[in-house]
Design a protein around this nucleic acid. Structure first.
Ligand SMILES: [Zn+2]
Ligand SMILES: [Zn+2]
Length: 757
DNA sequence: AGCACGCCGACT
DNA sequence: GTCGGCGTGCTC
């Protein structure tokens, strides 16, 4: 046996290559090695069912159960860095835990370029410098790009590619003769973009921050989950930076920082770059081009990048010297993948930390109840599956002096009804801000003009043809649009059912609020921010800077505005509609609402101008608001947790959902009914092996019963023990793969589902 | 998922 | 006669 991976030689004893592919089949495929230098973890091209696919080599074998005449030969092997065993171990765990085909798990963790057949040559990044003076006759009269390049090179000692790009988009072509003649030399740079000047500003840590840093640093080189519970403005980022400074002082050490996509702003990246300027840093997020993504991913994989800041998917990025993981805003539901393998990056990060034997820091001002439960030492009422060992760190002091929480008031809409979505108090508060030259921000979590178009004569409502949902009225584009499937239709001039021409928009959404504000405050500059207005690339950035420059008086938008930017002159935040979340059938809605309102409150007021938050609600006495006003998330979370324990909802129990959809619900129902029955039968037959007996609920239809012409259904599986739930899921999923309807319908498993449907 | 192979309606 | 519709079944 080989102690390490075998040398890349032609070995007839290991002529079988076992490969995983990006196909929805939970199997591996064997091929013959025609004598290529193949190693485990390599990327190969293989023939498969009449086409060519990229696969990853799992093993080199000397024999296989597949008849030799059925085996095809590997066509090609790429010479890029093979995937390492630690990464495979993590991917294997996730494929098992989330019941997703291993091949698809592996391939979907790779940058797109590595899933495609063309060689993934990541272009290297260089810095260019003038080696010797350029002779006068070198530049021809019409070679303007070349002339501009030389000017830039003369002005700067070293030129980045971004800088040279200012000369022309095709500067590389003009550069070639300079390189060929030796007039210009270049050196490769790894992962450092225009390096920011190191910031000497090193804030003094307060006592809580300092002891948090010390506590975490005390657990390096061992698995330890930390929950860093820090109120808004308590300086969590500063804690992260100090941790990195120490951890990265060890040669080669790498750190992975995860943030929700919307939080990965240039400002955040810049802060880490300037405070840790000596360490190569790369980011991984959806706005990168594919070649940037590949380059950054490879920089992490080779160890060249010491700091990786990424979103959900970056939890799988190979990092050979990973010493610490940080997951900021750990409560954010965008960490849960909602299609394909439905993993939760927070939970995967915990598994990875355990496998690597390193600490993981989960940061939040409003921790998820899962983490709260794990960290706060709640009474373990019948909880055998509870993870021990979480440690809680609390930051209660506002580190930044200017980070003052605004005053929060509820406006009782039962006493002062909203007119066109706005209560008199809120209108008055806006008027005041306009008079003082200050800015206001209004939240309404629905885009479009009105959520419903209604016929008052016959009660007709505009429905989507493809979904069981209402069409949303978009007046600006003069269409009805389904927010679930994207279908559009023209606004009918009369009721399609009774011919009544008087169709009325019902309810409020961003466009309509914007219109109302323009009518109420004709002199005010109103701007709207939602998915519809920020389609263009830099639209959001432009708008935010307009707000910053005081060119906007009132900003209307969806939750999209709740994060990130601070506007010093913004002193009023209005929340127009919270009641749908307060009494939602989704038991997680109030937890999410609290987090959102907390974040929203952070937008109001800075420095000498105190902020004010006005929340319109018919339920001002709700405990959520009292906790919000007192900024007491801990107490609120404790009470929610008691409810969950009493009702046996997560995190007091474990659930998984198996969903199915097809154009015909009869097939879905048959599949799910038989699945539930087979699962119950499995439990009966293996009852002695279950330390907790799972429950399988009958198939039901989700709130959105039809989506894009697909009829949907699901069954829920529940157990007080993770292990028991997994045991059942393995049996159920094995059963499902065997079912004749398996390929006719679409079915998915969602372990630890956040919502149903 | 793709992509073959396969067996019935209207077209050069 | 054959071009092509998409139903069924397999992929090392
Ligand atoms: Zn009508
Ligand atoms: Zn629809």
């Amino acid at each position: 046996m080989y102690p390490e991976a075998p040398a890349p030689t032609v070995d007839s004893a290991a002529a079988i290559v076992r490969v995983v592919l990006d196909v929805p089949l939970d199997r591996q495929f064997d091929y013959l090695n025609p004598g290529l230098p193949i190693r485990e973890g390599n990327r190969v091209v293989v023939p498969f069912a009449g086409r060519q696919l990229v696969g990853i080599v799992m093993a080199l074998l000397s024999e296989t159960d597949i008849p030799i005449q059925k085996l095809k030969a590997v066509l090609q092997v790429f010479d890029d860095v093979p995937l390492d065993a630690a990464t495979f171990k993590l991917l294997r765990f996730c494929a098992d835990y989330y019941h997703y085909p291993f091949g698809q798990t592996v391939l979907s963790s790779l940058p797109l370029r590595l899933r495609q057949i063309k060689p993934a040559v990541s272009r290297k990044t260089w810095l260019y410098r003038l080696a010797q003076p350029v002779p006068d006759d070198f530049v021809g009269k019409r070679q303007q790009v070349l002339a501009r390049l030389i000017t830039l090179l003369q002005q700067h000692e070293e030129c980045s590619e971004a800088l040279l790009g200012e000369a022309s988009a095709t500067w590389r072509k003009a550069m070639q003769p300079l390189l060929d003649s030796g007039l210009v030399t270049r050196r490769e740079v790894v992962a450092t973009r225009p390096s920011l000047a190191a910031s000497e500003h090193e804030p003094v840590l307060n006592e809580e921050q300092a002891s948090a840093v010390a506590a975490i640093l005390g657990t390096l080189r061992q698995f330890q989950p930390w929950l860093l519970f820090g109120v808004t403005g308590s300086g969590k980022t500063e804690v992260y930076i100090r941790l990195l400074q120490t951890v990265l002082s060890e040669p080669q050490a790498q750190v992975l920082i995860m943030v929700p996509e919307i939080n990965l702003t240039p400002q955040l990246e810049g802060r880490f770059r300037s405070r840790l300027s000596q360490f190569p840093l790369v980011t991984l997020h959806s706005h990168l081009s594919e070649s940037e993504r590949l380059q950054n991913w490879q920089a992490a994989q080779t160890g060249a990048a010491r700091i990786v800041i990424g979103t959900r998917l970056s939890v799988f990025t190979p990092m050979p010297h990973l010493k610490l993981m940080i997951l900021d805003e750990e409560h954010d539901s965008s960490y849960k993948q909602q299609d394909g393998m439905r993993y939760h990056a927070r939970d995967v990060a915990l598994v990875r930390a355990k496998q690597c034997g390193i600490p993981v820091v989960l940061g939040s001002a409003t921790p998820s109840l899962e983490s709260w439960y794990n960290a706060s030492g709640q009474p373990a009422a019948g909880q055998a599956g509870r993870k021990p060992g979480y440690r809680l760190l609390t930051l209660t002091q506002r580190a930044a002096a200017q980070a003052r929480l605004p005053r929060i008031f509820c406006i009782d809409t039962t006493h002062s009804p909203a007119e066109a979505g706005l209560t008199p108090q809120l209108k008055q508060a806006i008027t005041q801000r306009l008079q003082r030259g200050e800015q206001s921000l209004l939240f309404i979590n629905r885009r479009g003009y009105a959520p419903v178009l209604h016929c008052s004569a016959c009660q007709w409502l505009a429905d989507c043809q493809r979904c069981s949902a209402r069409m949303v009225l978009h007046l600006r584009q003069r269409v009805l649009r389904c927010h679930h499937c994207g279908a559009e239709q023209r606004i009918p001039v009369q009721c399609p059912s009774c011919g009544n021409p008087d169709l009325r928009p019902v309810g409020q959404a961003t466009q309509r609020i914007e219109e109302t504000l323009q009518q109420l405050f004709p002199q005010a500059r109103v701007a709207r921010v939602d998915r519809d207005t920020i389609q263009a690339k830099d639209a959001l950035t432009e708008l935010l800077s307009a707000v910053h420059d005081g060119k906007v008086d009132i900003l209307v938008g969806t939750q999209m505005l709740a994060k990130g930017h601070d506007f010093p002159n913004l002193t009023l935040v209005g929340v127009l509609d919270t009641d749908s979340a307060l009494y939602s059938p989704d038991y997680r809605a109030s937890e999410r609402l609290f987090a959102q309102l907390m974040q929203v409150a952070g937008r109001a007021g800075r420095g000498d101008k105190p902020g004010e938050v006005l929340i319109q609600t018919a339920f001002p006495q709700h405990a959520l608001f009292a906790a919000l006003q007192a900024q007491n998330y801990a107490e609120f979370a404790d009470s929610l947790l008691q409810e969950r324990i009493a009702l046996q909802f997560p995190p007091a129990t474990y659930i998984a959902i198996i969903k199915a959809e097809a154009p015909d619900y009869a097939l879905v129902k048959q599949f799910l009914t038989e699945l539930a029955e087979a699962g119950r039968e499995f439990i009966r037959q293996h009852v002695a092996t279950f330390t907790d007996q799972p429950v399988i609920y009958d198939p039901v239809r989700p709130g959105l019963a039809r989506l894009n012409r697909m009829e949907r259904g699901y069954v829920m599986l529940q157990s007080h023990q993770r292990g028991a739930l997994q045991q059942l899921l393995h049996a159920a999923v094995d059963w499902a793969w065997q079912h004749p309807l398996q390929a006719k319908i679409r079915w998915t498993v969602d372990v630890d589902a956040l919502e149903q449907g």
